[in-house]
């Protein structure tokens, strides 16, 4: 079915466009530098010059929020990429392999899943130390097991469907069935899942950064900005409020993308 672009769909796509622009081309959205501040203008409330106000060093909060989106989004994408790297082969193997392979992989996934994600990623952090890339690695590794389960479910569902049976009935080989039917049909749900997981990854990453295991200051990281702004909350609410809203916005946007991917077919 052809997709028609309507004004409503454009409005729905706006958050995605905004988030994409912020992380890929931040200088387009704000002119200020996120790292150098104007000490004279420290803790000034939102104004025409500084839409989101300035922080304790006089840095523009809007610039920090906009530049922070790259840090958060790239870490989240890296995390999901790492999960997928593990999960796709394991999930496919579980869905397509013999009963024993399936059982072994699912048992391993069960074990990893039983450890709450936050503890798993914090343990990995104790192992490899803090830092932006390390946080992404820790979050990605701890999310992989959930992915394995979901990919397995999806592949097993497709494999049990009648059109697979009828393809086998037409004399197609096992590998032909996988390449022609199973993989293309599981691609869409997997993508939808990945973008949904992007949202959870964003939350998990900002939580770990809030706890202080992310990139060191003065990096413009949303979780870190909230930690730093805490002490000034009573006098300068904007330093913590806007990064928080940015996290909600980013998580919600990935939700929208996931819904949009799942809908067709």
């Amino acid at each position: 079915m052809p997709h028609h672009f309507t004004p409503l769909k454009l409005v729905a796509a706006l958050p995605v466009i905004l988030l994409g622009l912020a992380s890929l081309w931040p200088s387009l959205l704000c002119a200020q530098n996120p790292l150098t501040g104007f000490p004279a203008e420290y803790l000034s409330p939102p104004s025409i010059n500084h839409w989101f106000g300035t922080d304790q060093f006089g840095r523009d909060v809007l610039a920090r929020v906009v530049y922070g989106s790259f840090s958060t989004l790239s870490s989240a994408i890296l995390a999901v990429g790492i999960s997928l790297l593990w999960a796709i082969p394991a999930g496919l193997l579980a869905g397509l392999g013999s009963v024993h392979v399936e059982r072994a992989i699912l048992a391993c996934a069960d074990i990893v899943l039983s450890i709450p994600e936050i503890f798993l990623s914090l343990s990995i952090i104790t192992l490899i130390g803090p830092g932006a890339a390390h946080v992404a690695l820790a979050v990605g590794a701890s999310q992989a097991a959930g992915f394995v389960r979901m990919i397995h479910t999806e592949v097993a569902r497709i494999r049990a469907s009648e059109y697979i049976e009828s393809a086998a009935g037409m004399g197609a080989t096992f590998s032909q069935i996988i390449l022609r039917h199973v993989l293309p049909n599981s691609l869409n749900p997997a993508l939808a899942l990945a973008s949904l997981r992007l949202g959870t990854a964003i939350l998990a990453i900002s939580t770990i950064c809030f706890l202080g295991y992310g990139p060191p200051p003065p990096s413009p990281e949303w979780g870190l900005m909230i930690t730093e702004g805490r002490d000034y909350l009573s006098t300068a609410w904007w330093i913590t409020t806007f990064p928080g809203l940015a996290i909600i916005f980013a998580a919600w946007t990935t939700n929208l993308v996931s819904h949009a991917i799942r809908r067709p077919l």
Binding site: A167, P184, L265
Partner: peptide
Amino acid sequence: QNPHVSFDPR
């Protein structure tokens, strides 16, 4: 019986 599910929906 149901031809709609015996074809790849894509």
